[in-house]
């Protein structure tokens, strides 16, 4: 019974997503004021030919700081969990 209810809810959600995509704007013609500014001025303002690197490390540097924090925390968590696993096996 719960599985049937879950399946119905999932189908409703997916059909809502598909409907939202079908009434969306056309593929390939995005609104692009901010990105046009970045494409035009990134070479002079950041000094890098790669606009993606300029966006990632200059315009949106705080975003990259959070990304590095998440990566570092995940690595720390993985090493910590494996360390506790190893210690418990040595004790047994």
């Amino acid at each position: 019974m719960r599985q049937v209810v879950g399946l119905v809810l999932l189908l409703i959600l997916v059909s809502l997503l598909l409907w939202g995509v079908l009434v969306m704007r056309d593929f390939g013609y995005p609104p692009s004021d901010m990105d046009d500014y970045m494409i035009e001025h990134a070479q002079q303002e950041t000094g890098s030919n790669n606009v993606v690197a300029g966006v990632l490390l200059d315009y949106r540097g705080l975003d990259t700081l959070g990304e590095v924090t998440v990566l570092f925390t995940a690595v720390t968590g993985v090493l910590l969990l494996f360390r506790t696993l190893k210690r418990r096996e040595e004790n047994c």
């Binding site: 950041t46 000094g47 890098s48 690197a53 490390l57 990566l71 690595v75 993985v78 090493l79």
Partner: peptide, 24 residues
């Protein structure tokens, strides 16, 4: 020889990612 702080930050991020993923 361009880009200001961007190449230095790329090198720092490269150290983080290669050491972190290798450790994992």
């Amino acid at each position: 020889w361009s880009g200001g702080i961007i190449p230095l930050m790329e090198i720092a991020i490269g150290f983080i990612v290669m050491a972190g993923l290798s450790a994992v």
